[in-house]
Amino acid sequence: MRVPILKQGGYLIASVQSALTDRDLLDLRDNLAQQVGKFRSRGVIIDVTSLDVLDSFAVRTLRTLAQMIRLRGAETVIAGIQPEIAFAMVQLGLDLGDVATALDLEEGLVLLERRTSGGGRRAKRSGN
């Protein structure tokens, strides 16, 4: 299941619609890291509201993804972690490190606006 990535202003929004295989997660990571450059985005939101499991592999991949996006000069917010999943993650001993999280997509956008001081768009490439 490919995750659709929407471009909204200077941000990219990846809405996870259904359970993801390990391969899907790795593809999402690579696609986002690439598209942040293509669209010169300042921020990325990964909406995981509809996910029913975040296991150790998924959490590790999300952390790597956020680190890669940061190295590309943009911010990542994971939005919509459900309460049951939050509980399971704590039981498993998993955390997202310093990756930003938000209650839902709306809060995620507010957080990104603040972190990227509004706008969301990067400087235009000169001579482009």
Binding site: D52, V53, D55, S56, F57, E84, F87, A88, L92
Partner: peptide, 17 residues
């Protein structure tokens, strides 16, 4: 029900992986 279902599903995910 509830979070127990998530715990079961997550535990299965770890041992299957």
């Amino acid at each position: 029900s509830g979070s127990d279902l998530t715990l079961v599903a997550t535990a299965i995910s770890e041992v299957a992986r």
